[in-house]
Amino acid sequence: MAILPGFTYTLNSIAYAAAIGLLSMGLTLTYMTTRVPNFAHATIGMIGSVVMLFLIDRVFYDNPGWTLFLAGPLLGGLAAAAFSVFMYVAILRPLANRGNTIIGLMIATLAVDIILLNILTLILNEVPGKNIPKLIGAPIIGFQPKIKIGNWVIDSYTIVLPLAAAVLAVAFHLFLTRTSFGVAMRATIENPDLASAMGVNVSLVYTVSWAVSGFLAGVAGALMAFAFKGVDPAVSALIIVTVFAGSIVGGLASVYWGLLGGFIVGLAEKIGTTMINNIYKALFVAHLGFPNISLVNYEKVMSLGLVVLVLLYAPRGLAGVDWGRLASRLGLRRG
């Protein structure tokens, strides 16, 4: 029996991991700038899914093609970014100015999460589809352009999502290093007082960080809509756990490690759990008489397990690990 998962499953898993990576990256960014763990982040990503669903229903129903894959993530990202900015400027910033503690602000993000989730659910329930009869739970996997390699038919979102993650990560890196506003953002993250003494509008930097974070979430959500059996904002309740796991594994101190942490956790959740399940079935069930249950349902145990491991052995996450020293200690590098 094969231990490794199949080809299609692997592609799906990589796409999922890339989406979690994008979400963890954005979550890490707003945590680094404004110090608030945003519990509404996954639901903000769902705005992207909803936009994608509406685009398919209203515009691209008859001829979905590659333009859908350009318009969906772009508009979904912008919508999510707009909401994210609204959340920071109209809700969190005033609350912080009123003297709320970090716990108060966390509660506020939970409140926003609940409001947004229920509004999105309400919209999908109440707004009639133009072509799709019932929008909530509508499967849209058939609306993506197909990629054919010989006899293989590949879900194109599984290619586009990792590609989008890579492009966005590079673009954001260039923004942070090549533009003076990007440099100001890094400066503000390190020392807001000094940055403001240099004339940086710290408040604007924070707002832009929320916009970027929301955009990344919206892009991930728009493309991830194809991964679900049907679009339902409620999936964000479990996704947020994985996203936080990715951010904590990454260390909540670097956007790149946030992306990578999310990717690692996402992969571990899908491919890691499947491999463990295959081993369990092949060994424990077949030969040792263990109950024949599917361990795949417990993939979230994997992400929380990784978080616990990281918090125990590398409390500052992968970003805090001294990789050079680790490599030399393991004999990988002389030094």
Partner: peptide, 29 residues
């Protein structure tokens, strides 16, 4: 509000509770 009654019972209270919390946090931290 032209919304299905069961949604009123399940979704609207959540929205209102969320809004209410934000208002309390704002008015009286």
């Amino acid at each position: 509000l032209h919304i299905q009654a069961e949604l009123v019972g399940s979704l609207l209270p959540n929205i209102l509770i969320g809004v209410f919390i934000l208002v309390i946090l704002y008015l009286r931290p």
